[in-house]
Computed example of a mutant assay.
Amino acid sequence: MNSHASSPAGPVEVVDAGGVRTITVNRPGAHNSLDRELRLGLIDAFTAAADQSAAGGDVRVVVLRAEGRAFCTGQDLKEQLEDSRRGTGTRKVVDEYNPMTAALLSVPVPVIAAVQGPAAGAGWGLAMACDLRVASSEASFKAAFSGVGLASDCGLSRSLADAVGQTKALELLLLDEKIPASRAAELGIVTSVVEPERLDGAVEELARRFAAGPTASYREIKALVRDTGAVTDRAGEEADAQARLFTTQDHVEAMAAFLEKRTPRFTGH
């Protein structure tokens, strides 16, 4: 099978092979956390995948994966702290996170997330914006929002509720406990769990099956089942909630506690 890379090495790598487009997040040294360069790179990659998987396109299935031990740990905290010092980045949820999520949701063919390790915050949101999630037994999921006095983003409050129901989604987001792969499978968050050494093979097998299947049918079924508009609308509501919470005492305390390496003392304000 012939393959070619359609982007150079960087924070996002794109490779096509036999109708399968593989998009790889490549910031392993930063746990694949999302800085501006990565967010913009993913917007471009997802938009191109959507365009090239439309009717008549060569891309028949998309795989989202990551290098290193973590799938994606959400917002890059170094960038966040620098933004806090400078008063910058106040619109990144609206200008970058939401377009990134919307672009991923706009891909009309099946999208598979290969989750090899921790997926936290926006990283979990990206995984849930995919259609299927194949996880390594070393994978885990964590919202990581209420612990820092914030609300969810990337439409996670809707996509998670769609997957597990409102009551369970509320429990998972409020309690903010790490969910191991085995528990994620029980909850229906992931499609399957395999041993780490089998992850790439399992994802490739599933992707090849989709690439050899009736793509027009897959597009129509996906459009009927997934209410992507509801997820993008919820992402907009989440952005409003984030804006309200950024200046609360509890969020400021959470950031201070992180810097001082201590447990935050929340007051409810």
Rank of each mutant, 00 (worst) to 15 (best):
S7A: 15
G10F: 08
G10D: 09
V12S: 01
A17L: 09
G19Q: 10
G19L: 03
V20W: 05
T24N: 03
V25M: 13
N26V: 03
R27Q: 15
N32G: 03
N32F: 06
N32W: 01
S33P: 04
R36I: 06
L38K: 10
T47C: 03
A50I: 08
Q52G: 03
G56Q: 05
V59N: 02
R65C: 13
E67H: 11
K78I: 12
Q80S: 13
E82F: 06
E82N: 08
R86E: 15
R86I: 04
K92H: 13
E96P: 04
Y97I: 13
Y97A: 06
A102R: 12
V107S: 08
P108K: 10
P108C: 09
I112W: 05
V115Y: 00
P118Y: 02
P118D: 05
A119H: 00
A119F: 00
A120E: 12
W124D: 00
L126P: 04
A129T: 13
L132D: 10
L132K: 05
S137R: 06
F141W: 07
A143L: 08
A144E: 15
G147P: 11
A151F: 12
G155N: 05
L156M: 11
L160Q: 04
A163N: 01
E171D: 14
E171R: 11
L174H: 12
L174D: 12
K178M: 12
I179P: 01
I179A: 00
P180T: 04
P180S: 06
E186S: 14
E186K: 15
I189A: 01
S192C: 07
V194A: 07
A202L: 07
A202N: 03
V203E: 11
L206I: 07
R208V: 15
F210Q: 01
A211G: 02
A212Y: 05
G213V: 09
R219H: 05
E220I: 06
D227A: 11
D227G: 03
T232V: 15
D233L: 09
Q249P: 02
D250H: 14
D250G: 10
M255A: 12
M255D: 04
A256Y: 09
F258W: 13
E260S: 12
R262T: 14
P264F: 08
P264T: 09
P264I: 02
